[in-house]
């Protein structure tokens, strides 16, 4: 775990962001009747938890990016450094899915769950 924090995991954001969003979608969809019955704003709370998961994946990707070896040098198209590429992808995907999860959470602030 300590190694993850120091060296990072370039692909972490690619899995963590979508996985957090998937869990958020399934949980939210299943929780609607409960939210309606108990009037507890579970949807935005759970969304925040999933946002943390997604951002954590993005953080590990970022660590992977900044600690990547300076070699090999990129070719004329900027390619040839796949670990940095994967890390960049991880950061971006984690950021995108964080936005999607936040939007899901915002729905829980607008609706109280009983509307048909």
């Amino acid at each position: 775990m300590a190694g993850w924090f120091s060296r990072g995991l370039p692909s972490a954001g690619i899995y963590a962001g979508p996985a957090a969003w998937l869990v958020d979608t399934q949980f939210n969809y299943a929780a609607v009747p409960w939210v309606c019955a108990h009037q507890v704003p579970l949807v935005p709370i759970f969304a925040l938890v999933m946002v943390v998961c997604s951002l954590f994946g993005g953080f590990l990707s970022w660590r992977g990016y900044v600690t990547a070896a300076p070699t090999p040098l990129p070719d004329s198209t900027g390619a040839g450094r796949p670990h940095r590429f994967v890390a960049l992808m991880g950061m971006a995907i984690a950021a995108l899915f964080t936005v999607v999860i936040l939007l899901h959470g915002a729905a829980g602030l607008v609706f109280h769950g009983c509307e048909r």
């Binding site: 939210n28 969809y29 609607v32 999607v100 729905a107 609706f111």
Partner: peptide, 10 residues
Amino acid sequence: PQLGASFFTA
């Protein structure tokens, strides 16, 4: 329920 549908709208 509208709340359920709203996740998919998003």
